[in-house]
Every structure is written in structure tokens, then in C-alpha cells.
Design a protein around this nucleic acid. Sequence first.
DNA 1: TGCGTAGTAGTAACATGTTACCCATGGCGA
DNA 2: TCGCCATGGGTAACATGTTACTACTACGCA
Lengths: 233, 233
Amino acid sequence: MPAAPTPRPPSLTERTIEAVRDGIRNGTFVPGELYSVYQLADRLAVSRSPVREALLRLAETGMVTIEKNRGFRVVLPGARELAEIMAVRVALEVPAAAHAARRAGPQDREALEKEREAMQQAVLDGDEGTFLLHDQHLHGLLLNLAGNSRTIRIIANLRDATRLVGMSTIRTSRSLEEVYAEHLPILTAVEHSDAEAAARAMRRHLESTGKLLLRGAATENDDVDRLWEDYVG
Amino acid sequence: MPAAPTPRPPSLTERTIEAVRDGIRNGTFVPGELYSVYQLADRLAVSRSPVREALLRLAETGMVTIEKNRGFRVVLPGARELAEIMAVRVALEVPAAAHAARRAGPQDREALEKEREAMQQAVLDGDEGTFLLHDQHLHGLLLNLAGNSRTIRIIANLRDATRLVGMSTIRTSRSLEEVYAEHLPILTAVEHSDAEAAARAMRRHLESTGKLLLRGAATENDDVDRLWEDYVG
DNA sequence: TGCGTAGTAGTAACATGTTACCCATGGCGA
DNA sequence: TCGCCATGGGTAACATGTTACTACTACGCA
């Protein structure tokens, strides 16, 4: 494991970030509602400094917006934002998949296979939370294989902004099985060290699930396919 | 102009970021040297809070590293880092150029033409500082045309990390003229709304100047072409 | 009723105090 | 000579105080 760049206990700032994320997931923070930074600091029993920093970072990723002298709001990304995000993901993850296919060694494939199995199990259990978790792990493994740390960081940030939408979307669309199936060609291509095929499969996967996300967030004014064409092309 | 999201005076944090950038450019901060956050705060006559935040942000972009309980250092990206950065730029800017070609209107082309002229003048003057400035403006215009705000932000961050290297590299290689010439096919393609050609030209440009940068930063252990192949592919 | 305006609550941004921690150094004993 | 540990300088992270704004509110005037 090349990990462990931060073996020391998470700072209050980091814990606050996590707390806000959790709060968003479990409904403590309702998207659109206005919240006070001071009160949040009180609730978490920390001072305003780490809370302030945490919110600034979350705002950078687009997860919350800060309204000057008013407080902060949790933001659900709209269809346009999601289209932008998916455009970046496609641009970065498609070539990353190709690289991964070229560079994967036996132990890498084993790790991928493990995630695949976990995903499959989650499908059988109908557990979309676990499914999304392993889905992200799998994409993370591929990015790690590609070896570009900048890409990894960028995608991690984007993921944050979409996770919330993903949860609700994928559930209502009942397509765990389909999304799972889309991963298989990617893994097969990696298995065969076929970079071209891996890229194609990844693109297809991102397009498919991306449009699913877009549809979940689209209003009647949004033309999902047109948005996709405009941003991702 | 859809700009002006921050019409208010820059905060001390922002001014500190700028101060550090300037300091790096004009040699006040020597790469590799260790500097004290406290002393920097004193020197700028501000408190530690904004300086701390500024350095944290700069550290995120990779421009400086923070050594725990020791201070901070300015980092010159190595060949590997540059390869990673260029990989991201290629992945994002090549499709962006295609989009830009599709969407450019008359006034957009006029703006691009203005930058081209300014670049040309800078070439004639042998002024690589001005040249790089307009080069960045031109790339910025294309990204704006493509319309993805995430992409814009990401590239802006990457630029920061490379600017320093670019300055010294492009001067020694005396290739202002060549780099300028590489932009022309891109602009021609945009003029003709030829997305494919724009993408090709942008890729070629980024590959050429990217390798130039890599060579400038490479040690005897680095094989530039191999690095490029590994990361950008 | 409509509108400007003083008043008020609440905050962003910054300054400063505090604590625990890390690292380098030098003395000391084996 | 080498390794160990106490010590002190210096910092990261956090807590808290302070100030200048900003957006809302309500009041009074037309």
C-alpha cells in the first residue's frame, strides 16, 4: 500500500467536513436550507475556525454555497452542473481506463475482481449504498493504476459533489443491475490488457450512468441528451 | 461579461497568495528553501490566519509544500509532476478546443484574434513574459468558449503550478516563434468551425510545448518521451 | 398603501492567545 | 565513537476576541 500520507488523527477541520457530509446524507442538512456557521460550531462543540475552513473547502468542491453574512446552504447540483462534472470525468477517466489496462498486473486484477464481487453481492442484496461504495472503489482502483495523482484528486472532489444525487437517483431507477453490467466490459478489457476496449467501455459506462444522473436532476426545461452533447460531446 | 463574481476588494488571504506568487517569480522565495509562516506574516504585516489559509491553498495546488511544524517550501515541479499536469491538460483542453470550434461566434473569434496579435507582437519583441501571458489568455478564451466552469477552474490551478517552470524553460529554448506557430492551426480550425482539426491541433500543441517543459525539468534519469507516453499516452 | 431609512441581528474576515507537538541539537553515559 | 535522551526553538491547529459589513425589519413619512 502506497497510502498513509497522513497517519495522524484527522484534524477537527476534516472531522467537520465529514460531519457535514454525513449530515447531508442522513438528512440533518436539508438542501436549500440556510444554516448558521456559528450554530454548527456549537453543535459540533468546536470553535468557528475549523468549521469555517471546512465549509470553505466544501464550497470549493461545490457541495455547499456560502452566502455572505447569512450562512451556508447545501446544494444539490442541477443538470447543468452534473453535465459539467460528467464531462470532466469522461475526459479524465476514459484515458485512465486505457492506461490502467496497459499497466495492470496480476495483483491489480485481483483487487479489481474483489471489488467486482462486492458489487455483485450488493446488487443481489439490493443495497445501493454498498453498491455505490464499491463502484467508487473500483473507479478509484483504475485511477490509481493509471498513476496520475492529480487526476485522482480531481475525480475525488467531483465525486463528492455527486454522491448525494447518485444515492437517490440510482435507487428510484432500480438499475443497479444495469450499472453493474456496464462495468464488466471494462474489467474484461483490463484483463486482456486491451486499452482501446477499456476506453470504449469506460466511455459507454460513464455516458450511460451519467445520463441516468442527469435525468434524475433534470427539470422539465432540461433536455438531457442535448446537455450531454453540449458538455461532453 | 459574465464575470465579476467578486467585485469586492481582495481579502488578505488572496493578497497573501498573490504576494507569495510574486515572491516566487522575483526570487524572494527560493525553491527548496524553508520559510517560516510566522515571519512571512510579520513581513506582510498581517496576522497568521490569512497567511495560513493562503499557504494551505497554495499547497493544494502543489505550488508549495507544508512541512509539519517546520514551515513551508516552494516546490519546482519535477518532470514527473509536469507529465501528470500535462496529461490532465491534454485530457481536458483537447475536447475543449473541439467544443470551442463548434461554438465560437464572430465576437469570440475577434477576441481570439486579438490575443494572437498580442502574442505575435511579443514574439517580435522577444518578451517571453508577455508572450506567456497572452498564451494563457488564449487558452483561457478557448476554455471559456467550451463553457465548462469546472474545467476552467482545474486548468487555472494547474497553470499556477507550472508558470514558474514555463518562464525559465521557454526562454532558454528560444522557441517563442515555434510555440507561437503551433497556435495558428488551432485558431484556423476555430475559424472554420472544424472541431476535429481544432482538437488535433491542440493536442499537437500541448504535446510539443509539454515536452519542452519536461525537458526543461528533466534530470538525467528522466526519459522525457517515455514519461510522456506513460502519463499522457 | 408604498417607500426610504434607521435599527438590529448575524456574519466574514482577521487578530491574537493557547496548547500540544515535532524536530534538531547537544550533553552524557556506555 | 556511538547512541540515547532531555531541552528548547518553532510551528500546526484550534479557541476566542474584535471589527466592519450586510441583509433583513420595522417604523415613519408621503
